[in-house]
Write a protein that binds this DNA or RNA. Structure first.
Length: 340
DNA sequence: AACCTTTTCAACCGCCTACTA
DNA sequence: CTAGTAGGCGGTTGAAAAGGT
């Protein structure tokens, strides 16, 4: 199948956006919503392709974007999630509200990755170079664990996306039945808001929430956790979903009951043959200590490695490394975005 | 001040997937 | 089932800014 390029029309502008173009795009979306991105430029009077407009909007003009320096907490989140998910920037971005995947990707490539390399940590595996030379048995065990956890997180994200889609359908159905939205017991903000932004009279910020915004459920609405969201490879022999997986999916889709999951965390870890006490990978805390102290020169970094490798706290921190990752993916913020 | 190098990050490109007719 | 389209994603690029000599 031959695809026609998005910007096949001659004369379409490329490169940096001017303030006038930004204004046109903003004004149009504020009034009409983005609708079809492909047809938007013409309607908005822009000599740009739809893809370029969408990118400009999602990465820069969207009002719910936080700009500026990344906090230590955000850095930690990125590093930990990268250890778990790899270069899945959009997935990582779902755990960092108000940050775009592009911004996170850039920040990783320009700051975090270099910092890790400086410290002798492989930014891909998140292991210290020395560790990669260590016993192969332990290494493969940990690699398997990492892979397993990544698989589970993938499954969780997929389930989250499906939940969102189902809730969207529910919402539309609900809407068509002329039922009171408030009585339905859940709130739902999706791209539909963007296609019809003027139908509500909420405040502008609320209306201008990004298409990748939230789906939340109240306790009143029965959760629809279906096997659909769980890849078959993660089911057991009877094609059932492990209970821990269900808890995991539920926790990610609700703004409460995270504690329920924590109670099952160790069961979950056992189930994937992942004894928490054996996991000593990760150098996040070390890295962040360095970052917080503002010691970015190579000498101090190298020194920090030497000192901290013999530091009890270092091992304590690393013991908690994966636990904190699990906490991160478990307890997504209440307004955490979902993927559509 | 002028030039060169490095860093940063907005934007582009091409591929993939979901959806629809 | 197939083909076409739209939107999304991750890798990469290149202009501008910052830093160094």
């Amino acid at each position: 199948m031959v695809r026609s390029p998005c910007c096949d029309k001659a004369g379409l502008k490329k490169g940096p956006w001017t303030p006038e173009e930004d204004q046109k795009l903003l004004a149009y979306i504020e009034e009409h919503g983005h609708g079809s991105w492909r047809s938007l430029p013409e309607k908005a009077g822009l000599q740009r392709c739809g893809k370029s407009c969408r990118l400009r909007w999602t990465n820069y003009l969207r009002p719910d974007i936080k700009r500026g320096k990344f906090t230590v907490q955000e850095e930690q989140t990125i590093i930990q999630l990268h250890a778990l998910l790899g270069n899945r920037w959009s997935a990582i971005a779902t755990h960092l509200p108000k940050r775009t995947d592009n911004e996170i990707k850039n920040y990783w490539n320009t700051h975090l990755k270099k910092r890790l390399v400086k410290m002798g940590i492989d930014p891909v595996t998140h292991k210290h170079k020395n560790e990669t030379l260590s016993s192969s048995s332990g290494q493969s065990k940990n690699a398997a664990t990492l892979s397993h956890m990544a698989q589970w997180e993938s499954a969780r994200l997929e389930a989250e996306a499906r939940l969102a889609r189902e809730s969207k359908l529910l919402h539309l159905q609900h809407y068509q039945n002329n039922n009171n939205l408030n009585k339905s017991g859940f709130t739902h903000k999706t791209s539909t808001i963007w296609t019809k932004p003027n139908e509500g009279n909420g405040d502008q910020q609320q209306q201008l929430e990004s298409p990748t915004s939230t789906v939340t459920f109240s306790e009143n609405l029965p959760l629809m956790i279906t096997p659909l969201g769980i890849p078959t490879e993660n089911r057991n022999r009877n094609n059932e979903i492990p209970p821990a997986m269900i808890e995991f999916a539920v926790s990610s889709s609700t703004s409460s009951d995270v504690t329920l999951v924590k109670e099952h965390e160790h069961d979950w870890m056992r189930q994937i043959n992942c004894p928490t006490e054996e996991i000593e990978e990760g150098f996040t805390s070390l890295l962040l200590r360095d970052s917080t102290a503002g010691k970015n020169d190579a000498a101090s970094v190298a020194g920090a490695v030497v000192v901290n490798e013999s530091d009890y706290n270092y091992y304590e921190d690393n013991k908690n490394y994966w636990n904190s990752i699990l906490n991160l993916v478990d307890s997504s913020p209440s307004d955490s975005p979902t993927m559509f």
